[in-house]
Amino acid sequence: MQPRINGTTMPVLELTLDAGEHIIAEGGDVAWLTPGFDMETSTAFGSGGRGGFMSGLKRMLGGGQLFLTRYTAPPQGGFVAFAASMPGQIRELQIDAADEFMVQSGSFMASTDDVEISVGLQKKLGVGVFGGAGVVFQKLAGTGSAWVQLSGEIVEYDLAAGQSMLVHPGHLALFRAQMPLEFAKVKGVKNKFFGDSLFLAEIHGPGHIWLQSMTPDKLAAALEPYLPKDSSPGSGGDN
């Protein structure tokens, strides 16, 4: 398998597979591919070979899809491409028992067969924050390669034992799964949208973290003034 990441602002992950090689991805996320691929959808994919429906349910609780699709290359080989859904970067992760990762919900793009995708962390942060839905991280475990999409520019830090960092949860894109993470309300700092106290994640070393400059909420808020308003009858807008 030969991965290639094309582009800059809106990158594309292109995976070239030899005959019979597999890749796992969420259904419907493919952008383009060469002819001849066999495509099979199942709840068992993405479970690291250790589950079926229950593994798919856990994955769905982590913000992923119940069903994943396995793409198998034809005898002549070929490539399949997945496009990023937001401006940002695509990163490749090598996963084994010593390197398991937690990634923001919705960031998973594709993986090899033996990678397990499941819910890693769910935290309710109070009414208003993240639309009242809290924050969700997917856990990537097992053995193999996985590709994730991170939003905006990426800043990386290595935290030593005893070090920690306070991060707005939406900017914490990716971290090693063994790193302790807790959430705290910051007194004296008001959330500018909702008026309640600001919640921050405190992540503790040792380990590596990836922080993203953009969050889906901030992108949506920036675009909202430019979106067409609903002017249909009964909407309250101008006809």
Rank of each mutant, 00 (worst) to 15 (best):
L211Y: 14
S231E: 09
P216H: 13
D238H: 02
T215E: 08
E224P: 00
S231F: 10
G237Q: 02
P225K: 11
A221E: 12
W210R: 11
A221R: 14
T215R: 06
G236L: 03
G236S: 07
P225N: 11
S213H: 08
A222T: 07
G237I: 00
Q212W: 07
G234W: 03
W210Y: 14
S231K: 12
P233C: 00
K218F: 13
L211P: 15
S231Y: 10
S235T: 02
A221S: 12
S235D: 02
A220W: 00
T215F: 05
S232F: 04
S232W: 03
L211W: 14
N239V: 02
K229D: 04
G236Q: 06
G237T: 03
T215C: 11
S232M: 05
L227I: 12
S231P: 03
D230V: 03
P216E: 07
I209A: 06
I209F: 04
I209K: 04
P233E: 02
L219K: 07
A222I: 04
S213L: 10
K218C: 12
D238F: 02
P228F: 04
L219T: 13
S213I: 08
L223G: 11
P233H: 00
S235V: 01
T215D: 08
Q212H: 14
S235C: 01
E224M: 08
K229V: 05
Y226N: 09
G237M: 01
G237L: 01
W210I: 09
A222H: 04
G237E: 03
D230L: 02
A222F: 03
P233G: 01
W210E: 08
L211E: 15
D230M: 01
Q212Y: 13
N239P: 00
L227G: 08
A220Y: 02
Y226L: 09
Q212F: 12
P225Q: 11
S232K: 08
K218E: 15
A221W: 09
S231H: 13
P228E: 06
D217M: 13
D230F: 01
A221P: 06
D230Y: 00
P233A: 01
P216C: 08
D238S: 05
K218A: 14
G236M: 05
K229P: 04
M214F: 15
K218N: 13
P233K: 02
K229F: 04
S213R: 09
T215I: 11
P216I: 07
P216W: 05
A222D: 05
S235Q: 02
E224L: 09
L211C: 15
G234T: 06
N239I: 04
Y226I: 07
Q212S: 14
D238T: 03
P228N: 07
A220Q: 06
W210A: 12
L219H: 04
G234P: 04
K229W: 03
S213C: 08
G237W: 02
P225R: 09
Q212N: 14
P216M: 06
A221I: 09
S231I: 11
L227D: 07
W210C: 10
A220E: 10
M214Y: 15
Y226F: 13
L227R: 15
P233R: 01
